[in-house]
Design a protein around this nucleic acid. Sequence first.
DNA 1: TCAATTGGTTACACTTAGTGTAATGGTACA
DNA 2: TGTACCATTACACTAAGTGTAACCAATTGA
Lengths: 213, 213
Amino acid sequence: MPMSAGGLRELKKNRTRQLIADTANALFRARGFDEVTVDEIATAAQVSKKTVFNHFPTKEDLVFYRAEDREAVSLAAVTDRPAGVSILDSFRTLCLAQTRFVPNMRRDLVHPRSFFDLVSDNPSLQRKMHEVNERIVRVLADALAAEAGAEPGDPLPRIVASTLVGAQRALYRRLRQRVREGGPDEEIERAHHADVERVFGLLGTGLSGYPPA
Amino acid sequence: MPMSAGGLRELKKNRTRQLIADTANALFRARGFDEVTVDEIATAAQVSKKTVFNHFPTKEDLVFYRAEDREAVSLAAVTDRPAGVSILDSFRTLCLAQTRFVPNMRRDLVHPRSFFDLVSDNPSLQRKMHEVNERIVRVLADALAAEAGAEPGDPLPRIVASTLVGAQRALYRRLRQRVREGGPDEEIERAHHADVERVFGLLGTGLSGYPPA
DNA sequence: TCAATTGGTTACACTTAGTGTAATGGTACA
DNA sequence: TGTACCATTACACTAAGTGTAACCAATTGA
């Protein structure tokens, strides 16, 4: 019989996992992804190298161990939206709410290496990030297909999912850029709001008029 | 002084590159990506391991060494389209023309491992594929931004690019599936044509009505 | 309370991708 | 013919990731 969540064994396992991830990310931020070996991480966390790889299949996974959260949030925007709200509107709301990350972005600005510096400096982390995005597209596409009752193999759900995730990413990226450029919160928020409206305006009415002549 | 394309040195270099790629892919198809080492490839091609890595930065690049072609074709659909043709229409035409790959797909059906079997069986090749797609999105986004005269940082070009590439991929995937399912060429072509029209119809008029109630 | 079992952790040996460097030898060019 | 160049090579090395068997604490059942 499984006891799962309650047990002490499970607790210790989660602690170990968290310890490894925290140790690794602290080292990565201090010195960069390539400049830290898994051996070092294991030593610093006082576990064996094998244990690190038991919890995280690749070194890259140490950086992206919270990726499932993003996946869950995006999925919820499709499956848990209130009745009468379209998928597009639900995603627009999700994108508007990206401003809640602004404090985190500001905090990152003072770090020697933010999460995004880490990723943008390193090809293998970029690949991993694309993998994460692709996974979200797939999960979302499945949800869309289920809701639409699409025929198996129908390309439409996937295209819609890819568009929504693409929009989400591009808007997030733009928001980060605005934060980097500085300025008061309200102004950034207003500008982001305008970006979101412009993007979802286009997606809502179609791409045939792009680029505007 | 560079002499570039004409020289014998360049010729030999290209020959070596081609030889390595061909040797590698033959081995991969015969036995699978993970079951072939770079050492083996080097030995089979009668070059040193270092030479392999001089031509291809990673083992995965041996599989995707033609990726630049796809990039060029997609880019040309934006930059080289006739006057008066919208980007969306140009991409629709490009997607319609995907049927020219059908003979190749049929040929792959009899192989023990097609290019796509290789990729879908292997996580690191999948990551590489996502990287290739992402690169195409970026290149396309830059071209769109240039044409639209977009402000630097504008998220729209990237979103449009991501949507177009996403559509292209999903339609290609669907076409492959149809070929796998069998049937005469004309029927597959007709079905693909309908897919393309449906997808680009949606993209042209907007996503607000998806899924259709 | 004790014995059996389960499952996360470990030590250890191993494979293989990928890098750095200096030497080799054919190509280009004057 | 001589010299500079550049792809290739041999060789030594680092580090990611795997397989296996032993180990030991947590769990379960009697």
